[in-house]
Simulated scan of single mutants.
Amino acid sequence: MDDRTLKLFHLSDIHFGLEDRRALAWVEECIAREKPDAVAITGDLTMRARHGEFDAACAWIRALDVPVTVEIGNHDIPYFNLFERFFQPYRRFHAIEDLIEAELDLPRLAIIPLKTTTRAQWQRFPWSNGWVTQGALDETLAAIDAQPAGTRILVAAHHPLTERRERDNKLLTINGTKTMAALAGRGIDAILSGHIHDPFDMTVTTSGGPLRMIGAGTLSHRLRSTPPSFNEIVIEGDEIRVNARNLEDVATTDMLIKEVPENALPPRAPGDPVAPVGAVPAIDPPVS
């Protein structure tokens, strides 16, 4: 039985088109030097799902010389070509097709995908927030149930699963509460996500038991309240340690937000969660 320590790099929201080249060069160097056991990228590879953005994103990911799994983010589904959005939403991923929602099988650890993006949402517009369909949840639960006994499980998704914003009950991820309870009931170790551009590491109470939720920040110029970062996740025995590594050498405790916000825009209203480092841009970052 292989009980060695595992190191994962959890990246998210690279947003080619508004990527931070300095941050990406730093991440490339970290991966080349440290050779993590795997890299999990939890969506939003591009800014507007344009062909040039996908070409750059796929080339960058393909050059990483480690096992990689990639989730689909809401920014990765075509915005302007509605035919592709509804009938060929993943066509532009062709260069890394084998990495999309790939289940990574590591020593006594499985990283299993959960789809939270949809082509359309009749409940709301725009279609940027999360939605876990019953089919997507069933696929993830089946993959969890197929793992050998004793396998540790990390689930990878794009959107955090928080269903409602606490202060005003605004809908965030459709079916998030049910999904959290189902995953907690399966005893997974954590769910990895992105979408909001600030890192977090929190454990929530569900009807199925406690669920650990780990979020990665961004490697783009679209900052919310923390500098560009990625998560280093170390699994050693029964312990999972998260280090929010960043370009400014800010301590992880100062990087983590305590509550899942509505979106990746900088906090402007009272009650919006802000990381202790408080690196909030003076103006809202560009979106295209």
Rank of each mutant, 00 (worst) to 15 (best):
G187Q: 05
P160W: 04
G185N: 02
R152N: 13
R165I: 12
N175S: 13
M180C: 11
A184E: 00
F200H: 11
E163L: 04
I174A: 07
E166H: 13
R186A: 10
T173D: 00
N169Q: 15
T151E: 12
L171K: 09
T203Q: 11
P210G: 03
R212S: 13
A136Q: 08
R186L: 08
T133M: 03
T173C: 13
T133I: 09
I144C: 11
P210W: 06
Q147F: 09
P199V: 01
Q134R: 15
E166N: 12
A181K: 04
H158V: 09
G135E: 15
R152E: 14
R152S: 12
I144H: 07
G208Q: 02
L183C: 06
N129S: 14
T206G: 07
A146G: 11
A190F: 08
A156M: 10
M180W: 01
D168Y: 04
L183W: 07
T140N: 02
I174M: 11
M202I: 15
L161V: 10
R186Q: 08
S128W: 13
A142M: 08
H159S: 03
V155E: 01
G150A: 05
A184I: 02
A182E: 10
G150Y: 05
V155G: 01
H195Q: 10
L137M: 14
G135A: 14
L211N: 05
S193H: 15
H158L: 06
M202S: 07
Q147Y: 07
T203L: 03
P148K: 12
R164S: 10
V204A: 06
D189T: 11
P160H: 13
H159W: 03
H197Y: 00
D168K: 03
A190N: 06
W131P: 01
D189E: 15
T162N: 12
L192D: 02
D168L: 06
A181Q: 05
I188W: 08
V204M: 07
G209R: 02
N129H: 15
K178A: 15
G208T: 03
K178P: 00
E139D: 15
H195Y: 11
W127F: 15
G187I: 01
V204P: 00
A157Y: 01
H195S: 06
H197G: 10
M180N: 02
L161I: 11
I196T: 07
A184Q: 02
G130S: 12
R165F: 14
L183I: 09
I191W: 04
A143C: 08
L137I: 09
T206N: 04
Q147V: 13
V155P: 01
D201P: 07
R164G: 05
G135R: 12
L161Q: 06
T151F: 09
T205V: 10
Q147C: 15
G135M: 11
G187Y: 07
L183R: 05
G135K: 12
G187F: 08
G135Y: 06
T177P: 01
G130Y: 10
E166Q: 13
L137D: 02
L183P: 00
T206V: 07
M202C: 11
I174Q: 08
K170N: 11
G130V: 13
D168P: 00
G194P: 03
G187D: 05
M202N: 11
L141H: 01
L171W: 13
Q147A: 13
T203E: 14
R165M: 13
V132C: 05
D201W: 04
S193E: 03
D138L: 09
L211R: 04
G208P: 07
T206F: 04
G176K: 02
H159F: 04
A181P: 07
T179E: 02
N129V: 09
T151V: 13
